[in-house]
Design a protein around this nucleic acid. Structure first.
Lengths: 136, 136
DNA sequence: TGCTAATTAGCAATTCATGCAAATTAGCAA
DNA sequence: TTGCTAATTTGCATGAATTGCTAATTAGCA
């Protein structure tokens, strides 16, 4: 995702307001590799801005996602996670502790797929399930 | 998944009872390529067995899943889908109508993954997003 | 400084799924 | 065939995650 400064400009340019809540979330997400859920971000945001609402956190995150600045990750259990890395990449999740990491898969856009039955493919999401170094 | 007859034997052999509700779900799922949700199966089951409870449908499906007879598919939106195909395979989902198909990906277990950072991988789930022939 | 559309907060509502306890029943044994 | 008992089913309550709605607030511009 863009930097907080760039996002500020991009928002204003589109007629969107740059509120303190949004700025805080820009900062919390920028460069964040934790793949946090909305609840996690809400508690982090609350520490810096008591009274911010969970609703606003959800709102801002989904807004950023629909602008293409965040990627939503569904790991199959629990809440959706948000990822500021919007490059072509995929994820591993530790089945022990739930930790998620970004991974890069060579040739993930050129997989040989059988059984497409007329479907055309726009994008590919790969989720690897395994164990992290601590949980192994 | 095994055939209804084989499942009947397998259940009895484990001390589990073969109730009419379970038999119905065995039949509804066997060879089913629709990737139905629990709600869909509940309405199909209700047509043949009025009064069957949604709770029982969920219970039986998750029991079958934990026996390895069904695969759970999370497509990132809406309810979990159930798949009697337990071979190594993956899925395409049509972003228009939500239709899901099984697909086979050559070499999906030998992908070159970068950034694993000490994680070991046990299994891989690939979800392709696209459009089906009708929605294209 | 004021205006106005955008945003926030906060609570209700929804969706999907599981927990629980009472009533029922499959499968076995006599 | 009958009765027993543990397994199962129901049905309702509960829970987690997320969205809908609306009044109150506020950013950004004139």
């Amino acid at each position: 995702m863009k930097s907080p400064t760039e996002l500020t400009e991009a928002f204003r340019a589109t007629g969107l307001k740059v509120t303190p809540q949004r700025q805080l979330l820009f900062r919390l997400m920028h460069g964040n590799t934790m793949h946090p859920t909305a609840e996690v971000l809400y508690s982090e945001a609350s520490a810096q801005m008591p009274g911010i609402s969970l609703r606003t956190v959800y709102q801002t995150l989904t807004d950023l996602a629909s602008m293409g600045e965040l990627r939503l990750i569904d790991v199959g259990a629990g809440a959706v996670r948000f990822d500021p890395n919007v490059d072509e990449h995929h994820h591993v999740i530790c089945q022990g502790c739930g930790d998620v990491r970004d991974v890069y898969v060579a040739g993930s856009q050129a997989l040989h797929i059988e059984g497409l039955d007329g479907f055309s493919v726009d994008s590919t999401s790969i989720l690897f399930h395994g164990s992290c170094a601590s949980c192994a």
